[in-house]
């Protein structure tokens, strides 16, 4: 069976949707030469009318995509760097995402914002290292964060077919992940549907994005000490609260492993909701980035500002040892 990488899954999902639906097109910087490999081979396959190379004009082309979507197309915008999503935050959250409501349901804006390199990369500087998925969830924009090639294929397919704006975060640290798949098994995955990667009975570890793989490694390392369930929400908005509740009902304990900044990140929301609505036998913990801090240019400084496996192992042990509230 073939081995599918995360990046190749994105290339395949986008190509399959462009084959299936003439209204889908991709626009972005350096897409002609497929700088990120997402659009590898596309210019030749689909031509310049469906592979639209744009100048460095992020607010302009994000608005442009809103217009094309209003007129019946399904644009997929590829962004190369996470901060570009902050530059167009208003255009996505305040314009595209509110338009269906503001028009009383007259017209939706089906744009996919594809961010295939989200998160920290050693040495690339403070301005290339953000992970802003929580901000889009905060603003009520559909946002997905798949961890595996199969999920990346399934959720990019769903994002493109969805009639609303959807932001797709592909974690940089997951791009090299490969998975043995049968191509025929690749299929759309509904938004708001979580996934149990490893079943367990003692504690639920909610892991997001590339941290899913690290959480699985920690669960394996601690296998003799505890039975850890690793649960991946896959989309942060909508969020599979029912799926989380089922997992927590089995384990009664919760640790969240989240690449967001600590204040107002997804980790904070997951803990708050679990505390309000679910039966936790012990206080939960989260392992996240610090409050709004990133260095980015010096790996040894920056690595201590990233959520780590050691922190997760310690948090899991603390929560397991806790005798209650």
């Amino acid at each position: 069976m073939p081995k599918l990488s995360y990046l190749k899954a994105l290339n395949r999902a986008l190509g399959d949707e462009m084959d299936r639906d003439e209204s889908v097109f991709v626009l972005g910087e350096d897409v002609n030469f497929a700088l990120t490999n997402i659009t590898a081979g596309f210019l030749k396959r689909y031509g310049p009318d469906r592979v639209v190379e744009v100048p460095l004009t992020e607010q302009g082309f994000t608005n442009f995509a809103t217009g094309a979507a209003m007129a019946g197309r399904r644009p997929v915008i590829e962004f190369q760097i996470p901060f570009l999503l902050l530059l167009v935050f208003e255009q996505i959250t305040n314009q595209a995402n509110k338009f269906l409501m503001m028009s009383g349901g007259q017209r939706s804006v089906p744009v996919t914002y594809l961010m295939p390199a989200a998160g920290w990369r050693a040495g690339w500087g403070a301005q290339h290292s953000d992970q802003p998925y929580s901000m889009f969830a905060h603003m009520g924009v559909k946002t997905v964060l798949p961890a595996t090639p199969t999920d990346a294929y399934g959720l990019l397919t769903t994002a493109i077919r969805d009639d609303d704006p959807v932001v797709f975060f592909g974690p940089l640290a997951s791009l090299g992940v490969r998975e043995i798949v049968e191509y025929a098994d690749l299929a759309p995955i509904p938004l708001g549907s979580g996934r149990v990667h490893r079943s367990g009975t003692d504690v639920t570890v909610v892991a997001l994005g590339h941290l899913v793989h690290e959480a699985l490694a920690v669960a394996e390392e601690l296998a003799d000490e505890a039975s850890i369930e690793v649960w991946d929400p896959r989309s942060v908005y909508p969020f599979d609260w029912a799926g989380l509740a089922e997992s927590v009902a089995r384990t009664g304990r919760l640790v969240v492993f989240d690449d967001s900044n600590r204040a107002c990140g997804m980790g904070a929301e997951i803990l708050a909701t679990a505390a309000e609505e679910m039966r936790l036998v012990a206080p939960p913990k989260r392992v996240t980035r610090p409050d709004g801090a990133i260095v980015g240019a010096v790996p040894e400084l920056d690595v201590v500002l990233q959520p780590t496996k050691a922190q997760l192992a310690e948090a899991v042990r603390t929560v397991l040892k806790s005798t209650g509230w």
């Binding site: 302009g60 082309f61 608005n63 094309a68 255009q91 314009q95």
Partner: peptide, 16 residues
Amino acid sequence: TVGHGAGIAAGIAWAA
């Protein structure tokens, strides 16, 4: 969002 209709207009026109 003052001025932002210009890009939206371009997108609609392009699609047409």
